[in-house]
Design a protein around this nucleic acid. Structure first.
Length: 278
DNA sequence: CGGATTTGACCTGCGC
DNA sequence: GCGCAGGTCAAATCCG
């Protein structure tokens, strides 16, 4: 939606809304979100241009594709070195994946929100996990959390999650073993968060924009088969997506009791100002 | 009140 | 055998 294209409201509240400062603040936020979306799309494009293997991953997000890429990258190094390599590479990319096929160990790097506490260390991947331990390791001041698959008691998969020591905005998750069951119900996978892992195995598949505490998620997991990151980037820039974005923000704000309170106060103040005798 | 999380204690493997 | 570090257990605590 372009600036100034506000739908008319039959109650005539919007003109009032438009001249109040909270509304101007919202428009400013909207502009910032649009700008961030453009920057994200540009960044994705640049990343894909520099990293052809990522383009392949984006086009065919299958376990075999991940394994093929990861095997090539980890062949000459130990699993630990691979994890470090991936952590470093992740500073240039948003997220990355390695697979050690022999031992069924996968390392996933994901960018975490800086505000996340250690207790929030969790890489959402479509499965439900139960934390069973936490330990501070020698080479990293941040605690390592140990998780077991909570969906099936007999499932042998374990997960370790630890904040990267050099780049604290990165989470390094190590998966051991393979699930012997289907993914857990939508409860967990629906909560795609800032770490951005959805339904397609361990491939990062969503981009989130956290603007002024409002989270907007572009879910790449639900793209049609064969769709690429470029096509998603183009989608971000379409008026239709922008419109959905705005509607999502409006819905979020409508459900925000604090915002509605502030809005009500602002409207009441305006009404009072427009009554000369008061 | 039941399930999830926390956290200190304990176990195990490895290098010296 | 000893010490260290990583991994796991389980009681206590938290939380919905």
């Amino acid at each position: 939606m372009e600036n100034g294209e506000r739908p008319a409201d039959s109650a005539g509240l919007l003109p009032l809304f438009a001249c109040s400062s909270p509304a101007e603040g919202l428009e400013e936020k909207l502009r910032r979100v649009r700008e961030e979306n453009r920057r994200l799309a540009a960044t994705l494009g640049a990343i894909l241009a520099d990293h052809p293997h990522l383009r392949a991953l984006a086009t065919a997000p299958t376990t075999s594709a991940i394994a093929a890429t990861a095997t090539a990258r980890t062949r000459s190094s130990s699993a630990a070195n691979a994890a470090r390599e991936e952590a470093n590479a992740a500073r240039e990319q948003t997220a990355c994946v390695t697979v050690e096929s022999r031992t069924k160990v996968r390392t996933v790097c994901a960018r975490a929100e800086p505000c996340d506490s250690d207790a929030n260390l969790s890489v959402k991947d479509g499965y439900q996990w139960r934390k069973y331990g936490q330990k501070v390791t020698r080479d990293n001041p941040y605690p390592r959390a140990y998780f077991r698959c909570a969906f099936a008691p007999s499932c042998p998969v374990k997960k370790k999650v630890q904040r990267d020591a050099e780049d604290t905005s990165m989470l390094v998750a190590t998966y051991e073993g393979e699930h012997n069951h289907a993914q857990s119900p939508a409860k967990e996978s629906a909560r795609i968060d800032s770490t951005g892992y959805g339904q397609t195995g361990f491939l990062p598949c969503s981009v989130s924009v956290n603007s002024s505490s409002q989270m907007v998620t572009l879910d790449l997991a639900n793209q049609l088969p064969g769709s690429s990151v470029e096509s998603v980037s183009r989608k971000v820039l379409t008026p239709a997506f922008q419109k959905v974005l705005v509607e999502e923000m409006v819905n979020s704000l409508k459900n925000d009791a604090e915002f509605m309170q502030a809005l009500t106060t602002a409207v009441a103040e305006k009404i009072v100002q427009n009554i000369p005798d008061l």
